[in-house]
Amino acid sequence: MSDILATVKFDSEGFMVDPNAWTPEIGKAIAAREGLELTDRHWVVINYARSEFKAKGQSPTLRAITKNTDVNTKEIYALFPGGPAKMAAKIAGLGKPTGCI
């Protein structure tokens, strides 16, 4: 598990520097490092976030996830303590959300 992460570059807060280097195995390893075991429900969110990132170049908002998957907001917070912006993005290898300034 730690081997697979040894070659991955992270920023100071543990977000992957290069989202394109992500694989599902890396996702599992990041989740394990954060103390999470991924279930099918986690993967619904992660797969959606990855496909949105591929299509649009940015990670989806909380609203986009809840509108376009069958996972509701309460469940997302239960699945990913800390919320989708931080924890789900981290496990999916995506950057954390930023504003314009």
Partner: peptide
């Protein structure tokens, strides 16, 4: 109160402001 990780989220703006 903001859903973002801080009032300033871009590194250089955050450093200055």
């Amino acid at each position: 109160s903001t859903p973002l990780p801080g009032a300033f989220t871009k590194p250089i703006a955050a450093a200055h402001l």
